[in-house]
Amino acid sequence: MNKEKLNRIGVIPALGLVVLLFIGCATEDTQTVVNFTTQITMQDEFDVDGAPNGNIWGFDIGTGENGWGNNELQYYTDREQNVKVENGVLVITAQREDFEGSAFTSARLLTQDRFEQAFGRFEARIRLPFGQGMWPAFWMLGADIDENPWPAAGEIDIMEYRGQDPNVLIGSVHGPGYSGGDAISKVFVLENDRFDTGFHVFGIEWGPDEVNFYVDDVLYNQITREDVTGPWVFDKPFFILMNLAVGGTFVGPPNAETVFPQSMLVDYVRVYENTNLNRN
């Protein structure tokens, strides 16, 4: 998987989005956080200490190609120093250590070949780390990525965050013609709070024609077929990834003040299907 998540400056001007949001809210009853009858299809509450549940989660190991396509600095492992379940949360820890030629280690979990689903509500409750060079993400890739390489397979970033912007969340979609720096993206600024001091719910509600992005109880973006500057590829199963990258093009390298080790804490991951939609 060589995905280029380069500098994403494809941010729709905030004012335009506010307008969009208001119009959306005024005209569509469906624009609420829970907008359909749901049935849970996957959940991991991380209640059993030890390694993450192997029926749900696999791991990417190593440095990928060219730092997972982004010049990331960490070596991903499945060691407990980098990933474990403890006290009811999944702990993904970035360490500063010399390991297999890399200066940092961390972990990346994925549900590929274990859990894949089209449409529904995907959410996780996460507390993020902070500091220059920390790049946590909760995201999805098209399950056909092996046959249909990125960006054609599609990517939905439910949560991305730069440690140096502790109150800024980024939600995006990537597809053919709108990937990397040209992704369809929006930032959300948490007012009078930050993402590294408490848990927040990051989620999407995904239907055949749109992806709604929300944080906690705030719907902050909707991306529809009309918004993407290429084919709509979000009509097939995707799998989930969670990782804590260190450095890379998107965030820049850590600096002397960046605290290590630091962890991304995940309280739960839950996926629902729309009983009206998914079972048709």
Partner: peptide
């Protein structure tokens, strides 16, 4: 002020 962003 209570900024809410003074942390860590």
């Amino acid at each position: 002020e209570r900024l809410g962003t003074v942390a860590q």
